[in-house]
């Protein structure tokens, strides 16, 4: 069979499948809706994870390590140590906070300005604020940096508040795993829905299948239109999922922006990226094809011509 004939036969099978689905619009709509909702749920979880990561991204990048020097350590020595710290890998920024600057800031923001003026000498030490690089925020990276800074003999205390970062990362990790489990379960659901729909169609077209086999149609030939049916279900289901997500994002966008504004943020909900949309459609097509293939292979084997 030439490639042109092969392509024509595939086009005929595809158009035939499309026509059959169009001839029963209500049943097709219900099936596509179920597949669309099943695909929309993992997509929604994916967007939740993406948006949660984006929303908390500012906080995780703001993890600072505070280094408090002993009272007798001069500012010049602190500046020398700052230079040492800057040379360390995984350090993005080092700020020297002199004892005087610290006192002024404390007076300004603490509400104890008058009381602090009564002090004979500045009780605050010179300090460094060390900000790790974005790719050096893991608990082990932070612990290593803490050990390095604490080893300086001039240092009194090193303070790393990384516990909440670990908790946040753990929550995001749980969300990612929930997403994975949901994707697998709902993917199996899509397989079942497509498989069952194809099974019913095979039953309805049993007489036709018998005739096709009788005139020499192979299982692969008979299966072809059902595979196209599965792919059409999967792709249109993905389209529905995309539409559902667009509507949901449209509804939530304003409220989330208002909430962010109250916290002084310009944060806005992000929709699915082009890559995620591509995955959605590819996933829908593959699940539809696979569901149809499993069902068609299983049921067509049992149908043989009768005389």
């Amino acid at each position: 069979m030439s490639i042109a004939v092969y392509g024509t036969r595939h086009a005929q099978a595809f158009l035939g499948s499309l026509g059959r689905l169009a001839r029963s619009p209500f049943a097709t709509f219900l099936t596509v809706l179920v597949i669309g909702l099943a695909l929309a749920l993992p997509l929604a979880l994916q967007l939740l994870v993406t948006n949660a990561s984006r929303a908390t991204g500012g906080f995780t990048s703001a993890v600072d390590v505070s280094v408090y020097f002993k009272q007798n350590v001069a500012l010049a020595e602190v500046q020398q140590r700052a230079a040492n710290a800057r040379a360390q890998p995984g350090v993005a920024e080092v700020t020297v906070i002199s004892a005087d600057d610290a006192l002024k800031e404390f007076q300004k923001y603490s509400g104890f300005g008058a009381a602090l003026q009564a002090l004979e000498q500045n009780p605050l030490p010179n300090a460094l604020r060390v900000r790790p690089a974005a790719d050096a925020m893991s608990p082990s990276d932070l612990a290593r940096l803490e050990r390095y800074l604490a080893a300086w003999p001039e240092v009194d205390t090193v303070q790393v508040d990384s516990q909440w970062v670990e908790r946040l990362n753990a929550i995001l990790d749980v969300l990612k795993r929930v997403l994975l489990v949901a994707a697998v379960l709902l993917g199996a659901g899509v397989l079942a829905v497509v498989g069952n729909t194809v099974r019913l169609e095979i039953q309805n077209r049993r007489a036709e299948i018998e005739v096709v086999k009788l005139v020499g149609g192979s299982n692969a030939f008979v299966r072809r239109p059902f595979l196209y049916t599965g792919v059409i279900y999967g792709v249109t289901g993905a389209l529905v999922a995309w539409g559902v997500m667009a509507i949901a994002l449209g509804v939530l966008e304003g409220s989330v922006a208002n909430l962010a504004k109250l916290y002084g943020s310009q944060y806005a909900l992000a929709g699915p990226a082009a890559e995620e949309v591509l995955w959605l459609f590819a996933g829908g097509a593959v699940l539809g094809w696979l569901g149809a293939w499993i069902s068609a292979t299983r049921h067509l084997r049992r149908i043989e011509p009768r005389a």
Partner: peptide
């Protein structure tokens, strides 16, 4: 046409 379609005969 069915047997010819099944056999992959050109249009």
């Amino acid at each position: 046409a069915l047997p010819l379609i099944v056999a992959g005969s050109p249009l």
